[in-house]
Structure formats: C-alpha cells, structure tokens
Design a protein around this nucleic acid. Sequence first.
DNA 1: CAGTGGTCTAGACCACTGA
DNA 2: CAGTGGTCTAGACCACTGA
Lengths: 238, 238
Amino acid sequence: MSRPLHERIRADFEGRILGGRLSPGDRLPTEQQLMQRYGCSRMTVSKALSALASAGLIERRKKAGTYVARPKLHSMILDVPDIGAMISERGGTYAYQLIAGRMRKASADREDEVSLAGKGELLQLDGLHLFNGRPLGVEYRLVNTLAVPEIRDADFTSLSPGSWLLQHVPWTEAETRISAVGAASSEATLLSVSPNTPCLCVERRTWRGRERITQVRQVFLGDAYDLTARFGPGSAIK
Amino acid sequence: MSRPLHERIRADFEGRILGGRLSPGDRLPTEQQLMQRYGCSRMTVSKALSALASAGLIERRKKAGTYVARPKLHSMILDVPDIGAMISERGGTYAYQLIAGRMRKASADREDEVSLAGKGELLQLDGLHLFNGRPLGVEYRLVNTLAVPEIRDADFTSLSPGSWLLQHVPWTEAETRISAVGAASSEATLLSVSPNTPCLCVERRTWRGRERITQVRQVFLGDAYDLTARFGPGSAIK
DNA sequence: CAGTGGTCTAGACCACTGA
DNA sequence: CAGTGGTCTAGACCACTGA
C-alpha cells in the first residue's frame, strides 16, 4: 500500500471505465462524496480526477459534475523506431552507407530548403540503410549547418546522421508525414528492386525551439518496414 | 491576468526551455526559490512543475533537484483522421459504398479472426471509400458481434462502419500498423488503377477493456492519402 | 545527514453554469 | 441561486538520495 492515495483513486476509476463498469456519459461521484468515500482531503481527490481528465478518460464541468468521456479517435501514439536499435532487437545487423555528402546552398526555388538553411549553407547527406547487408531504405537528409556547426567535423561514411543528430542536437519539435510511393528508378537501383516497387515514405522535419535543425526523406521497402501506433487512456498507453 | 498562476509558471519555463534559454541538463530553481520568486505557496509551484514533468520537459530527482530533460525520440502523436470529416474539410464529398456484407464464422486457421470472434460470429463488411465519387481506398472490416450485437440491425449500404462504431461503441485501446503495399489485382480493379500501384495500408485493431471489438484493413491510393505525426512538448503539441 | 521533491491536510474564496 | 469544480494557502510529515 505504499502507492500514493491519489494514484489509487485514479487507478480505481480507470479500471472501472476500462472494464466497462462505468460507461461514457455516466456520472462520477462529486469531489465531496469521494472525500468521504476515501477519507481524504479534497486536494487529493482533485489530483486523481485531474489526471484522469488530462488523460481524456473523464470530462469535468462546473455545476454539472464529472462524467466518463467518450473516447475520441483523433490521435494515437506512433512509435518512431531508431532503425539500428530496431534491427538489433530482431537479431539482425544494421549498417549505414553514405552515398553522397556535400555542402551546398539552398535551391532558391525550394522554399523548404531556403527556410531550413537560413543565411547559412546546407549539409546534404544521402545514404542507404542496410539490414543484414541488404538495402532497406534510401535516406535524403539536409542539415542546417548554422544550427549545428559541429556536424561539419563528423564523418558519416558509415555513421547514420540520424543517430549522430539525436545524440548531439536534442530537438524539441518534429513533424512527420507518412505516405506510400513507388520507388523512383534511381532508388530502385539502390534498393535492388524494380522501379515503382511500393515503398513507405517517411518525411520528417525537426526544430529546436523555433530553429530548424534538419529535414529528411526516407524511402523504405514496403515489404520490409512498417510503423505501429497505439492508443490507450492514461497508463494503458505504455 | 485571469490565467491561473500555476499555468503562468508552467508557460514561463516552457518558453525558456523551447527558446533555448534553458538547455537540457540545466538545473531549475528549487521549489523553495520558486515560491519566493512567484510569491505563492509550494502546492502551486508543484502543480506547475508536475505538469512540465509529465509532459517530459523536465526531470525531477529528490535531493538532486529539477533539471531540463533531454527530448526522446521514442514516440510521436499520430493524427488518425476521420476520412469523411477530412474530406469535408477540404471541400470534397465523401461516400462509403458497401461491396459485401455477411455474417460468418471465424476461419479456424486465422488466429486473429478466432480471437476476435470469441464464441460468436463475425460480421464481415467490405467496402469502398470514395472521394468526389472516385475510389480512395478499400476497406475490409470484421466485427465481433458478441461485443456489439446491435450492429446486426444497422444498414451499411452507404454508411461507413467506422463512423457507426465510433458513435456506438467507444473503444478504449487501439493498435495501428502502417505499411506500404502494392494493390492486389482485385483491389486494383476496385480502385481503377493498375495492379501493384503503391498504396498505404492501415491495419487497426480495437478493444473495449479486454474485449476485442473490430479489426480493419484499409488500402488507400498512395498518391491521394497520407498520415501526419507530430511531436512536441506539452502544449506545443497542439 | 541534510536538501529536495512527493504527498497530504483542512481549510478558503471564487467562477461557472445548469436547475 | 446553489451546486460543482478550479485555484490557492500555509502548513505538515515523509522518502529518497547525493554530498
């Protein structure tokens, strides 16, 4: 019983809601009633209910009371695997192979490149992700060298720029777009498949505060790579 | 200034961290110091810092103090759009068209079907999602009729089972797998494209508590449908 | 062993809003 | 206008853990 009381109150109602003993729309007891039932102060009850409310399990309205919420299908948690770590878990070997790396200016007609580069130059790093020696995906990456000047000194011949960036430049925001594309002919050659083979395309842009750090486009073989997302209230999400 | 004080303290430090004025590893003032700085009680400070901690922006350790956390790339928020709503937003028209609907038993050799059906029968609903009258994707759905007996009375000729289920059977957990596939020949015919055209495949299974509700496989035209995911600390995620 | 955060109390005043 | 949740205070005791 060492678990805090507010945690136990929270878990209590979480269990009743998930188990269906409380259904969406049902009213929960008032804070006053819960104080009596659990023999505690109002702050403790409030902490438990606030946690449930921020997890989206309940809705609280003044005067009206507290009600079980209707789950909403608006967002889920997407696992963004570190490719190397994921492959290692499955007992395979992972490698990165640089295809082309160079400093260059942003293309004036590419708005995304211009806003990424700012007043500096871009580091372009194109490479291949390999799974057990076989190509898994192509990666096209651009890095804002004004934001990350020390990246000029790193050697990416066989080091994945994604891993390096994760360790050296913690970002605070990211946006990912996921789509299905057919392999372009150059990609098909690199991946040893026929052109137009279905591939999962992951495009990501990351920020540190308001500063753009990097953007990347990855094209993975559709039959070798996928993503999973989960949804669940509160602690069930883990 | 009607915003609560704990919100303002929270927003204050959130801004400093996102703006880079506080970096990962930096130490925040102690609760005692913050009480003095903001002229408030310790509970108010604690509420602000707890919110930042649960958003992953800071880490708190007894005796050692409170520190700015290093952002982790383990998960992002994935928007799971309601197809109809999404299309309406873009000013298009959405329609669902049933291809085949029938009651049947689970295939004994399909473990997922057996566990979904339990001791009852499955309702199979195959249909087409249409965008401005043109096929956008194929959907293959199975529903556990023991969990949702009232679904036998619904008419899905032109009503999307996904929308019906959302309104009638709020689920509490879901798991989604996203991959790229080539359109099978039957799918290619339905979608009016060539076989093996790259498509985004979304497979989802949902639960209410421990009870399986439905599972669905959706195959969308790759050039007409994509998903986005975002990551950001706390309120920035909205 | 002392500093720090984690939890909890027993009050208080207030804002909102549905009966 | 009365019930309900939102916020806040000024204390208290404790658990953890790094100096």
